[in-house]
Lab assay of single mutants.
Amino acid sequence: MGKSNSKLKPEVVEELTRKTYFTEKEVQQWYKGFIKDCPSGQLDAAGFQKIYKQFFPFGDPTKFATFVFNVFDENKDGRIEFSEFIQALSVTSRGTLDEKLRWAFKLYDLDNDGYITRNEMLDIVDAIYQMVGNTVELPEEENTPEKRVDRIFAMMDKNADGKLTLQEFQEGSKADPSIVQALSLYDGLV
C-alpha cells in the first residue's frame, strides 16, 4: 500500500471509500495523518498503546488498548495497516448500531470462538476500569469489574449457560440505554 507515500493510489482510495462510511477526501485526510504518525505505514501494539495513554492519562489503558489493537489487526500480523485502521474507525465512528455491536462482540470474544464467556467479559471490564482509573464515580452495584459483569450476565445471558452469543449480546445491549450510549460516543466526531 505504498508504505511511506503521502498519497494513496486512486484505486485504493476508491476501494476504501466503498468499504467504509468515509468520502474519498476523508480517506485521504486520514491517510495523511496516519502516515505522519506512522511513517512506516504500520502501527504496532506499543504505538497503539501510546495513543491510548494520551487519551487516558489518569488510568492505565495498556490492557484495553491491547484488546482493541487485536480487533483492529484483522489479518493478525501484529501490525495495523491503514486499510485495517480506516475500516475499524469507520465501523466504530459511523457504523450502524448492529455493526458497532458486532465489532464490540469481537472485542469481548477474546478467543474468537463465537461466545463471550464470563471470564472474557471480566478481562475486558477489568481493563476498562484500569483505563479510566479513579476518574469515573461508579454506583455501588457496579464499583468492581466483578459486580459489573454479574449485572451484565444477569441481564443478557437469557439461557443461563454462562456465555453470551452474538444475538444475546446484541439484544441485551439494545435493551440497556447506557450500552447504546457508550457505543454512540464516537458518532459525529469524525
Rank of each mutant, 00 (worst) to 15 (best):
residue 159 N to F: 14
residue 57 P to H: 00
residue 61 P to W: 15
residue 5 N to E: 12
residue 22 F to H: 15
residue 182 A to H: 14
residue 136 V to N: 02
residue 53 K to L: 05
residue 132 V to R: 00
residue 112 N to H: 11
residue 145 P to E: 14
residue 11 E to M: 15
residue 149 V to D: 00
residue 150 D to K: 04
residue 34 F to S: 05
residue 55 F to V: 01
residue 113 D to S: 03
residue 74 E to I: 03
residue 86 I to L: 10
residue 106 K to Y: 07
residue 39 P to I: 00
residue 23 T to E: 12
residue 50 K to A: 07
residue 106 K to H: 12
residue 35 I to G: 12
residue 39 P to G: 12
residue 124 I to E: 03
residue 76 K to G: 01
residue 3 K to R: 05
residue 58 F to Y: 00
residue 96 T to L: 04
residue 112 N to L: 06
residue 116 I to T: 06
residue 160 A to C: 05
residue 39 P to L: 11
residue 184 S to Q: 05
residue 104 A to G: 05
residue 95 G to A: 08
residue 47 G to D: 15
residue 49 Q to W: 06
residue 16 L to N: 14
residue 18 R to M: 12
residue 22 F to P: 00
residue 168 E to L: 11
residue 80 I to N: 13
residue 51 I to K: 08
residue 147 K to W: 07
residue 59 G to W: 03
residue 18 R to E: 02
residue 97 L to E: 15
residue 50 K to E: 14
residue 152 I to M: 09
residue 31 Y to R: 15
residue 15 E to D: 08
residue 90 S to H: 15
residue 3 K to Q: 13
residue 27 V to Q: 08
residue 4 S to L: 01
residue 146 E to V: 12
residue 42 Q to L: 07
residue 140 E to S: 14
residue 54 Q to G: 04
residue 48 F to T: 11
residue 52 Y to H: 09
residue 166 L to P: 11
residue 37 D to N: 08
residue 177 P to F: 04
residue 155 M to G: 11
residue 76 K to H: 00
residue 32 K to P: 13
residue 112 N to S: 09
residue 121 M to L: 13
residue 154 A to P: 06
residue 119 N to Q: 08
residue 129 Y to R: 00
residue 120 E to S: 10
residue 161 D to K: 02
residue 23 T to Q: 12
residue 113 D to P: 02
residue 47 G to V: 06
residue 151 R to F: 05
residue 145 P to N: 10
residue 126 D to N: 15
residue 17 T to M: 11
residue 24 E to K: 12
residue 53 K to A: 06
residue 171 E to D: 05
residue 169 F to L: 13
residue 99 E to G: 10
residue 141 E to M: 07
residue 81 E to M: 14
residue 35 I to M: 15
residue 96 T to Y: 04
residue 61 P to K: 11
residue 72 F to Y: 03
residue 45 A to L: 13
residue 107 L to S: 02
residue 30 W to P: 00
residue 37 D to G: 09
residue 42 Q to V: 07
residue 141 E to D: 04
residue 139 P to R: 06
residue 65 A to T: 12
residue 17 T to R: 08
residue 51 I to W: 01
residue 55 F to G: 00
residue 163 K to S: 04
residue 108 Y to T: 10
residue 64 F to C: 10
residue 66 T to A: 09
residue 150 D to Q: 04
residue 179 I to L: 05
residue 165 T to D: 13
residue 11 E to V: 15
residue 111 D to I: 15
residue 102 R to Q: 08
residue 15 E to A: 09
residue 25 K to Y: 11
residue 51 I to L: 11
residue 104 A to D: 09
residue 177 P to H: 14
residue 60 D to A: 07
residue 163 K to Q: 04
residue 143 N to P: 05
residue 66 T to K: 08
